[in-house]
Design a binder for these strands. Sequence first.
DNA 1: CGTAACTTGTGAACGATTTCACAAGCACCA
DNA 2: TGGTGCTTGTGAAATCGTTCACAAGTTACG
Lengths: 207, 207
Amino acid sequence: MKRIADSTVRRLSLYLRFLEEFEGRGLATISSDELASRGGTTSAQVRKDLSNFGSFGKRGLGYSVPELRARIREILGLGRNWRVIIVGAGKIGAALALYRGFSQRGFDVAAVYDSDPRKIGTPWDGTTVRDIASLERDATELRAEIAILTVPADQAQKVVDRIVAAGVRAILNFAPVQLRVPADVTIKTVNMAMELEGLSFALTNRE
Amino acid sequence: MKRIADSTVRRLSLYLRFLEEFEGRGLATISSDELASRGGTTSAQVRKDLSNFGSFGKRGLGYSVPELRARIREILGLGRNWRVIIVGAGKIGAALALYRGFSQRGFDVAAVYDSDPRKIGTPWDGTTVRDIASLERDATELRAEIAILTVPADQAQKVVDRIVAAGVRAILNFAPVQLRVPADVTIKTVNMAMELEGLSFALTNRE
DNA sequence: CGTAACTTGTGAACGATTTCACAAGCACCA
DNA sequence: TGGTGCTTGTGAAATCGTTCACAAGTTACG
């Protein structure tokens, strides 16, 4: 399959959100132009993005909202539920676990891990915090596909190696470090400091 | 000034982190190649990034670690402290406020806002939660440059309009919606759902 | 002082992504 | 049925970002 740009995938996510909103309002069809203006892009961009995967619209009419929504869900792999583990039961991990959007969107938190003996065994939103030492041992039981990493920076690489060893092939990293993973593992890093510094740069270098 | 790519700014942040680490270890100089391999990029990329802002290296030798660190800090606008307000005292807001890296890196939390009467007035890490209604009134006192937005999606646009009205020109948005702001306001959106869907796409469309 | 080893800074080539522009398809209506 | 108005899908052009490749500067050393 043709390589798809990361920016395209992000926009598909965005379109999906708008389509859900439009469907909630009972709209039957939508044009690439309406979708574009809602998402801050252009109609040509919307059509190009979609054309990577087929042709879903009707000339002269636009796109059927429910159909396009279904197609994008399928493209993004949201036709099924994913098993997620959260590694690091600190403040950020807790905030994420409580975020309702998660399970609503088909990402089920299967387990939460920590290395702190004071946290291990404590109750956590219907389950209990597990010892990070049992990560590999639990792997066959849980068969998690996605890991969310919220451990301190200095432990992140060590922990991510074990996550990969446990068979997880997609990682969302909140630790403020650059992690190394094998080529067949997808990792996305969300780095607060980097975002803030981007804002600082923008404020400083206004013309 | 020449327009700088977003990707360049993100890499500068990354280089800065490495330089701090190297300086901590007492290294005096570093080559573009070492910096590159540490950050998963190429030496040409490092040099091109830096060349946007001047020439800081010595041919044959590389870059002085302390000097380059100082230069990048200056470029990113980190030579001063920034006043930050957190709008939305929920779980995510709380997790962020407690994140130590913030103040360490020169981003001072000047105030926290919420609209929930049960939260307003409660103590919060040395200050108290303020009523979001007083946002504009507080503006001249606080002179905040950056706002971190962690309110529910359905309130986000309304709140962001008020943040802009209060004179804030840079916003880090955690609400899972696309926000509209005037052209002179910089907004960065961190959207968990979008990141997870990116992982879902990657897992689904492996060749 | 000359040469070898190394590394920067940067035009030019390349590759990827976005925008343009238009033929072709569809619905509606007279 | 033919004409009008609208919107898609997509090559081609333009723009943007990355990689290549090499001249030129610097140090080390005999």
